[in-house]
C-alpha cells in the first residue's frame, strides 16, 4: 500500500483525529447535551411550563422582534456596503473595510456602552431625547441599535470576498446591454450572490438572537419588557430556576443547531465556497 507524499503516518493521523474529537466533544458536544438534559431533567411538563411563563413568552417575542428588525436592516446595509466596496473606487474605501470589522474586534460590552454614552440620560443626546420624551436606552430602540451594530459585519463579510471574486464583468455586460442600475442589481448581481447572502443572513440572525453583552448593557433588564432570551436565561439562572434557565437556553441552542444544519445544507447543495462561480 502506498501513501500519498503529504500524508502523515497512521499513528500521527489517529492521534490528531483523537485530539480533535476529544476537544470537540468536551467543549462543544458535552455542553450542548448538558443544556438539553438540564432542561428536561424534570420531564417535558416543567420544561414546557417554564417556556409558558409570561416573562419567558415576552422574552421570546422581543427576541423575534429584534431579529425581525435588525436582520433585514443589516441585509440591506451589508449588500450596499459590499456593492460599494467591490464595484467602485472611492477615497476612504480601506477605512470603510476596516470599520465594517469593528464590531468583531470590539468587546460587545463596549459596543453597548457606546450607545449608553450617546443616548443615555447623561449621554450626548440624553437631554434632547428626554425633552422630546424619546426613550432609547433601557428600551427596545436601544436593543435594536446594539444588535444592529453587533451583527453588521456578518452579511458584508460574507459578500465582499464573493463579489470581489465575481468581479464587475457581469454588471458591465448588463449595463452595456441597456439595463439600468436597478435592473442590473435585480437580474444580475442578486442572483449571483443569493446563496452567499442567505448564508450571511443566517449567521446574522443567529447572532442577533443570541447576543448578550451589548444588549445587556442597554436593556435595563426590565422583565416582560426589555429582556431578550439570553438576558432572561441569566435572570432565571441567578434565581436558581435551573429548569427554566436551561429550557430557554435550549431554545437558543436549537436555533444554533438549525442554523448550522441550514448552513451545511446550503454548502452541500450549492458548493458555496468551493464553486461560487460555476
Amino acid at each position: 500500500m502506498s501513501m500519498a507524499p503529504t500524508s502523515e503516518s497512521p499513528l500521527a493521523r489517529a492521534a490528531l483525529i483523537t485530539v480533535a474529537l476529544v476537544f470537540l466533544g468536551f467543549f462543544l458536544l458535552l455542553p450542548l447535551l448538558a443544556v438539553f438534559s438540564e432542561a428536561l431533567r424534570q420531564g417535558a411538563g416543567p420544561f414546557l411550563d417554564a417556556l409558558h411563563t409570561p416573562d419567558a413568552l415576552a422574552a421570546i417575542r422581543l427576541t423575534l422582534l429584534i431579529a425581525a428588525i435588525s436582520v433585514p436592516l443589516n441585509m440591506v446595509f451589508g449588500v450596499a456596503a459590499s456593492w460599494a466596496i467591490t464595484k467602485f473606487q472611492f477615497p476612504g474605501k480601506a477605512l470603510l473595510i476596516t470599520l465594517i470589522d469593528l464590531p468583531f474586534s470590539v468587546s460587545p460590552v463596549v459596543s453597548g456602552l457606546i450607545f449608553v454614552l450617546l443616548f443615555g440620560a447623561n449621554g450626548l443626546f440624553g437631554a434632547w431625547l428626554a425633552e422630546h420624551d424619546l426613550k432609547i436606552i433601557f428600551a427596545v430602540p436601544g436593543i435594536v441599535l446594539a444588535t444592529v451594530f453587533i451583527t453588521f459585519p456578518f452579511v458584508a463579510r460574507e459578500l465582499i470576498p464573493l463579489m470581489l471574486e465575481q468581479g464587475k464583468d457581469d454588471e458591465e455586460a448588463a449595463i452595456s446591454l441597456g439595463a439600468n442600475g436597478w435592473q442590473t442589481f435585480w437580474h444580475v448581481t442578486l442572483p449571483n450572490i443569493r446563496w452567499g447572502l442567505l448564508y450571511g443572513v443566517l449567521l446574522c440572525n443567529a447572532r442577533a438572537m443570541g447576543e448578550f453583552g451589548a444588549v445587556s448593557v442597554v436593556s435595563g433588564h426590565i422583565r416582560g419588557e426589555t429582556n431578550t432570551m439570553p438576558l432572561h436565561v441569566e435572570i432565571l439562572y441567578n434565581e436558581y430556576d435551573f429548569v427554566g434557565a436551561f429550557a430557554v437556553a435550549s431554545l437558543l441552542a436549537l436555533l444554533a443547531l438549525v442554523t448550522l444544519i441550514a448552513k451545511t445544507v446550503l454548502e452541500w447543495r450549492f458548493g458555496l465556497h468551493a464553486g461560487a462561480r460555476h
Partner: peptide
C-alpha cells in the same frame, strides 16, 4: 455599442436564450 468581454460575462443563472434576449427584455 455591443461589447464582448474576454471571459464572456454570461449570466450563469439564465438560459442561453435569456442571455441573448437580455438586452431586449430590459
Amino acid at each position: 455599442v455591443g461589447f464582448v468581454f474576454q471571459h464572456y460575462a454570461l449570466f450563469r443563472h439564465m438560459t442561453v436564450a435569456d442571455n441573448v434576449a437580455f438586452g431586449l427584455s430590459v
